[in-house]
Design a protein around this nucleic acid. Structure first.
Length: 346
DNA sequence: AAGCCGTGGTA
DNA sequence: TTACCAAGGCT
């Protein structure tokens, strides 16, 4: 198959407009023979799953600084990695990241095929294609949310997502070049992120505007169609924040599976339709009078707080007193922490 | 196969 | 405020 004119147009646009990103080898450097580090490509792609470039940037730089190679990461302690991931969300990614690093370290190197990559934990159809194309220049087709949107507009696909996924993948494959597959993959995603945006796409400056079937009919802003989403329920809970004289906080490590799996959390009963009082020990718990609200993917949370500064020796029924930093905590636990600190300092 | 799994930015 | 969305994967 010969690489087509649309593909060439997009690569020309990318040569002139590629964003500078910490994990990216520029098209000019690639042309000069610079080869991407598979470890950096893999790490960035895991962090970028359902996560914006702006949110990932500092985390990526910090991880690369602390653990410069996959062997370094494989040798890291679990709690340290979870702590560094705290705040980025989707914590199963961090657990799988470690598992994956250890498998690769045992293998001796990254797999060099898409199938080999996809057999690893945390690497699915998108990420295996992305690493194959970006790190190895293999002609694999990446299909993320950007590509789905771009293809649904280019080919005027009215089928709603997620049903349209296979159709959009087949269409995307028709444009993937045999050469410069890595630059092309990043070019389509850059196009989706900066020009072919969900709302108000900038068709006037799009390198594909004359080819776009949806634009020809003026319906580009209404694509892709999506199935309606269910409304989020609200759950309620109570958490207990206790500080001892050493400045340590009573915390527990959450179970590996499920919400915030493997992360630190404040003790308390499970969250549900009603708030359940379940203090980890008897004390004069104070109510700061401020509720924490937080939005998760599939529910809203209203969290009541109970705070105490302990002086004697406490034998809690749950958790351990730990010397923690705010940055070790997932965001919802940080919010509660901030309220407790403010309350205790008054 | 459809539900579960975070967070922050934007309109 | 509400709703949507972002370089998805796992079960």
């Amino acid at each position: 198959m010969r690489d087509g004119p649309k593909t060439a147009d997009l690569l020309d646009w990318y040569d002139a407009h590629a964003r500078v990103l910490p994990w990216r080898v520029s098209p000019a450097d690639r042309a000069g023979g610079i080869v991407p580090d598979p470890y950096a490509v893999w790490l960035s792609e895991i962090m970028l799953q359902q996560t914006t470039v702006a949110a990932v940037r500092d985390y990526f730089t910090r991880f690369m600084s602390i653990w410069p190679t996959v062997q370094d990461l494989a040798a890291a302690e679990d709690d340290r990695v979870m702590g560094e991931w705290a705040g980025l969300g989707y914590y199963a990614r961090a657990r799988n990241l470690l598992k994956c690093a250890r498998e690769i370290s045992a293998l001796g190197a990254f797999p060099t095929t898409r199938a080999g990559l996809q057999a690893l934990p945390g690497i699915g159809p998108y990420t295996s294609a992305a690493i194959s194309a970006i790190a190895y220049d293999l002609p694999e087709t990446v299909v993320d949310g950007n590509v789905e949107r771009v293809m649904s507009r280019m080919f005027h696909v009215e089928t709603p997502l997620p049903d349209a996924k296979s159709e959009l993948t087949a269409l995307a494959e028709t444009l993937t070049p045999q050469k410069r597959a890595g630059d092309y993959a990043q070019a389509v995603m850059d196009l989706g992120a900066t020009i072919c945006t969900p709302k108000s796409p900038a068709c006037g400056i799009c390198p594909w505007n004359s080819d776009c079937l949806a634009r020809r009919s003026g319906v580009q802003a209404e694509l892709p169609k999506k199935k309606p989403k269910a409304k989020k329920p609200t759950r309620f809970g109570v958490v207990y924040l206790a500080r001892n004289q050493a400045g340590e906080w009573l915390m527990e490590r959450r179970p590996e599976k499920g919400l915030l799996g493997g992360m630190l959390g404040w003790p308390g009963a499970e969250w549900g339709d009603v708030a359940v009082e379940q203090p980890p020990f008897s004390a004069d718990w104070q109510d700061p009078g401020v509720e924490v609200r937080h939005v998760f993917t599939h529910f809203n949370l209203h969290l009541s707080l109970r705070v105490v500064q302990t002086d004697g020796k406490i034998q809690p029924r749950q958790g351990l007193f730990l010397d923690i930093k705010r940055s070790d905590l997932p965001t919802v636990m940080r919010k509660a922490f901030d309220v407790a600190i403010s309350h205790l300092s008054h």
